[in-house]
């Protein structure tokens, strides 16, 4: 027994030394990090790229948009990722951090759009919501229902109280937690969109931007909005079990489960592929990824990966990403970013 453990110890020592030598070697695959919303699309392209090209399949970590940017902007070199996916545009502060760390040339790619849907079970009727309804139902503080320019803690408990045209069911919305990009986008597009329909709140934007954001972006915490975790499949299952509840998630989950759930109409538009694509559905956001120009040519395959992504076979109207639920960008935009991908035009932010 002792001999065995001595042998094991020797083996582990040897292994540690082997590990030490292999670390110095470069990387022969693309390393991608970032948004969990872009993840299903990026992985599809990566897999296709790995199969059709002579390069290895890129490795994709789902770290969230913010986490991805942090890793991406940490510097240049094989230890840092080559690409980061993002469900929002790069922030100025992140851009500056990148610049400060030597990541000077960043190529920006907009890959398409993602609709955020508010859905419920097919067992109940489809809801006809407006962004104002969503704001009134989900914000922490809302304008006093009795009138005036005063804010009160959200008093609404049923949809009917929010808008007499809606059913008298309790407000119960399952949605993502604050760490999620989907939540950020929902708050920004749906709630803020409804929030600024109140003239006195809109007027605040110029005077006190912080207070304005505080009102429009704060979700109520009294149990009407239920943080259901990052797993959208779970929300879909819960909606089936509880037909009164509404759920907030990405369009691709609605697309895959259209026999069980239906998307509510928002401001008179349906969350369908067509209406999100033509821009009439208001709660949709662009998706991006960012590439380190300095790594192109150093890590094999980056230029080819860009070419695969920016091909109409992938992100076009009939491309394989549309099958996965990505809403393609308009032709003009696609052409512009495909050119940027080819010429590696760096992003300039002042």
């Amino acid at each position: 027994m002792l001999k065995k453990s001595v042998a094991l110890a020797a083996a582990s020592l040897m292994m540690a030394s082997v590990a030490g030598t292999t670390l110095a070697a470069g990387r022969d695959y693309i390393s991608i990090v970032g948004s969990s919303t872009v993840y299903p699309f990026a992985t599809t392209v990566a897999e296709q790229f790995g199969k059709t090209s002579r390069f290895k399949t890129p490795k994709i970590e789902s770290t969230g948009s913010g986490g991805g940017m942090k890793l991406f902007c940490a510097g240049i070199g094989v230890k840092t990722p080559d690409v980061t996916n993002s469900s929002r545009r790069i922030k100025k502060s992140e851009y500056q951090k990148c610049q400060a760390n030597g990541v000077t040339d960043i190529v920006e790619m907009k890959i398409g759009y993602d609709g955020i849907v508010v859905a419920n079970s097919k067992k109940t009727a489809q809801l006809e919501l407006s962004r104002k309804d969503l704001f009134l139902a989900l914000a922490k503080d809302v304008p006093d229902p009795k009138g005036g320019e005063k804010l009160v803690a959200n008093p609404y408990t049923t949809w009917k109280e929010v808008n007499p045209a809606l059913p008298a069911t309790p407000i119960e919305v399952l949605g993502p937690p604050p760490t999620s990009g989907t939540r950020d986008a929902f708050v920004e597009l749906a709630m803020e969109g409804g929030c600024k329909q109140f003239p006195f709140i809109k007027a605040m934007k110029k005077k006190d931007k912080k207070a304005y954001k505080g009102i429009c972006h704060t979700v109520r915490e009294d149990g009407a909005y239920i943080e259901a975790g990052e797993n959208d499949n779970l929300i879909v299952q819960k909606l089936e079990a509880n037909p009164q509840a509404l759920g907030i998630f990405g369009f691709s989950f609605l697309d895959q489960n259209s026999d069980k759930i239906q998307g509510s109409r928002v401001d008179g538009t349906n969350p369908t592929f067509e209406e999100i694509a033509d821009g009439s559905y208001p709660v949709s956001r662009p998706l991006y990824f960012y590439v380190k120009k300095a790594h192109v040519g150093v890590i094999p395959g980056i230029a080819e990966y860009l070419a695969e992504f920016s091909n109409d076979r992938a992100w076009g109207e009939d491309g394989y990403l549309a099958d996965k639920g990505l809403i393609p960008a308009p032709v003009e935009e696609r052409r512009q970013f495909a050119r940027a991908a080819k010429e590696l035009t760096p992003l300039v932010m002042d």
Binding site: A19, T43, G50, T57
Partner: peptide
Amino acid sequence: GMVAFIVDVPGGLTDP
């Protein structure tokens, strides 16, 4: 970073 999409079956201790 081991929570990642990896298609290729790893063949060694330093492969993703």
